[in-house]
Amino acid sequence: MRLAGVVLIALVAGFLMWATRDLPLRGDPQSPASTHVSVYYIENALVDSKTPNMVTAVLADYRGFDTFGEAVVVVAAALSCLLILLRRRDDQGVVDDPDERRRIAGGADP
């Protein structure tokens, strides 16, 4: 089982190495990634938003929606940690009281 796992992982790593044959060489300035969309960012960041730092321009403007999503991820993480770890005494009763649980379980909607 353990061996099978190691073999599988080795296969994944080997697969990646196999696939990198067709990736651009390290630092190739003519790679597709460096010649297609990114050129626009480099050439226009300053013109479009007076921002010399292209990373910031891409981050907050061109792909601002990613960043917005990312911000939501952070909030979601905080919210998740609180949800997992904390318990709030609800404004509608004490939470661990069996009587309260029974009250919630029975009867119609409050």
Partner: peptide
């Protein structure tokens, strides 16, 4: 990828900003 006066906007002079954003 921070604009520098002496380099202008030559694409080959700056690293690709997009992957950096993605990594961030």
């Amino acid at each position: 990828p921070v604009y520098a006066e002496e380099l202008g906007t030559e694409p080959t002079a700056y690293m690709n900003p997009l992957p950096q954003v993605i990594v961030l």
